[in-house]
Amino acid sequence: MIRSVTHPQAGPWHRIHLMRHRRALILMTIVIGIAVLFGISGYFSGVAWPTLLEAVLRTTYRLALAYGIALVLGVTIALLVGWSPFIDFFFPFFDILQNIPSFALFPLFIYFFGFTDQMIILFATSSIVWPILFAVLTAIKGAHKDLNDAATIFGATGFRRVSFYLAPLALPAVLTGSIVGIAIGWEAIIGAEIIANIAGFGAFIKNVDISGIDASAVAGALAILVIVFVINRLVWAPLLLESSRRYAE
């Protein structure tokens, strides 16, 4: 009797993912280990932990809001443009807009919104939105012609095309666009907080740098690293795994 002993899902991709997963865990364990060693040696004794925690949480909160707005805005615009017959018209137009450096528009945001939370959040939104929008548009533009035809032939027309075809088609692109967008978002928010000196992680490292307390900057960087790692492991890694399983050719 012939019996298959290979699990159908234990393919090469699964193994690669497990290796990456292990590598990420090892890397994080090393980082945390170093931090613990620094802590034991008393390196972080001068760090104002409550202030640092508040600053990190403030920045993370701004990022979460900016990402939420950018996600809704980017996906909606991309789906509507991708659904319309004008995708080729809008693509270069968006390309020009996204090439404008975000910080070149920073004075405009200050002018309109002042030195406020809203200003930082909307400024970050304007940076995060582009990778999401382009990823979705590229996914729609690059969809296989047969898949488009199948959707049309089997009745995915009108607004149903958006909800039943374009939106699920673009889901992996939303994930990758989000990962890139959030990375850009951290930079935009921290950069904006440094420039505008608005309470948050950016202002915290700017102030500790001036006062010369390096341990606080290191502690802050470690705190951000842990947040990024946790978001990556708990949110993006499982979603990417599921998307690559489902969307594999």
Binding site: D146, F154, F164, Y165
Partner: peptide, 27 residues
């Protein structure tokens, strides 16, 4: 009319059952 494609053109995010039911869902 219906069509069967050379490259199958199945929707990768849908199960076999949901792929088959796609046209009916649209109706």
């Amino acid at each position: 009319p219906a069509m069967v494609f050379q490259n199958y053109a199945l929707f990768p995010w849908l199960s076999a059952l949901d792929n088959v039911a796609f046209g009916l869902r649209m109706s």
